[in-house]
Simulated assay, not measured.
Amino acid sequence: MKTIEMREIAALVRRLCMEANYYLPDDLRQAFRRGEEQEQSPLGRQIFEEMIANCDLARENDMPVCQDTGMAVVFAEVGQDVHLSGEGSLEDAVNEGVRQGYTDGYLRLSVVGDPLRRENTNDNTPCILYTSLVPGDQIKITVAPKGFGSENMSAMKMFTPAASKQDIIDFVTDACVNAGSNPCPPIVIGVGLGGTSDKAAYLAKRALLRPVDAHNADPLYAEMEKAILDQVNASGVGPQGLGGTVTALSCAIEPFGTHIAGLPCVVNISCHVTRHAEGTL
Rank of each mutant, 00 (worst) to 15 (best):
V177H: 04
P186H: 09
V188S: 11
S154F: 05
V172F: 02
D230C: 01
C184K: 07
A222Y: 06
A163H: 09
T173E: 02
D213P: 00
A227T: 05
M158F: 08
P185D: 06
L229Y: 07
M153S: 03
T103E: 03
D123L: 02
N122D: 12
G149P: 05
G194K: 13
G147F: 09
G136D: 02
V98K: 09
R108Q: 13
T173D: 01
R117Y: 07
I169T: 12
I189V: 15
R99A: 12
S181M: 14
S164D: 01
I128L: 13
N216F: 08
G190L: 06
C184H: 06
K226Y: 03
T103N: 09
D174Q: 15
L209N: 08
S150Y: 08
D213M: 10
M153Y: 06
Y221S: 03
A201H: 02
D170T: 12
I128G: 07
Q166W: 15
L229R: 07
P185R: 10
K199F: 05
P161L: 11
Q138A: 14
L133R: 13
D104Q: 14
G136H: 06
M153I: 00
F148W: 12
I228G: 02
D198Y: 00
V112N: 07
P185L: 09
E225C: 04
L203M: 14
L229I: 03
G195Y: 10
T196P: 06
P145S: 07
L208R: 05
L193P: 07
R206L: 14
A155N: 02
